[in-house]
């Protein structure tokens, strides 16, 4: 289960994620981002502290938003103070691309 809460709307969007972000739950996040419309977003901050699980598919989805926004001169940030989630982000090397 993934709960997606849009804390702050366009153009400086903040989205808090709770639960698990993986292949089966990514659609809920995609729907929320689609509704906000990427073209109107200047920056997209994901708060991951409420996540229990994130796997490589979930991280791939976040990197996809980074790529899409980079083409529009936008930025993606990952906020997180959950040690287990941070370990996985570090393991995959995402922190070299997406910072807090």
């Amino acid at each position: 289960m993934l709960r997606v809460k849009v804390i702050k709307g366009v153009p400086e969007v903040v989205i808090a994620l709770e639960g698990s972000l993986d292949m089966g739950t990514g659609e809920a996040l995609q729907r929320a981002v689609d509704e906000l419309n990427l073209n109107r977003i200047h920056s997209l901050t994901f708060s991951l502290s409420g996540l229990e699980i994130i796997d490589s598919t979930g991280i791939g989805q976040l990197i996809g938003y980074h790529r899409a926004l980079s083409q529009r001169n936008g930025r993606v940030y990952l906020e997180n103070d959950n040690a287990e989630i941070e370990e996985i982000l570090g393991l995959i090397g995402v922190r070299e691309i997406l910072r807090s």
Binding site: D55, S56, T57, I59, G60, I63, I88, L91, I92, G93
Partner: peptide
């Protein structure tokens, strides 16, 4: 290891091996 643009195979196994 790490996320690859072409495939996430490497990333998945990096996580599993950890």
């Amino acid at each position: 290891s790490g996320y690859s643009e072409k495939s996430t195979l490497g990333a998945g196994f990096t996580i599993m091996m950890r």
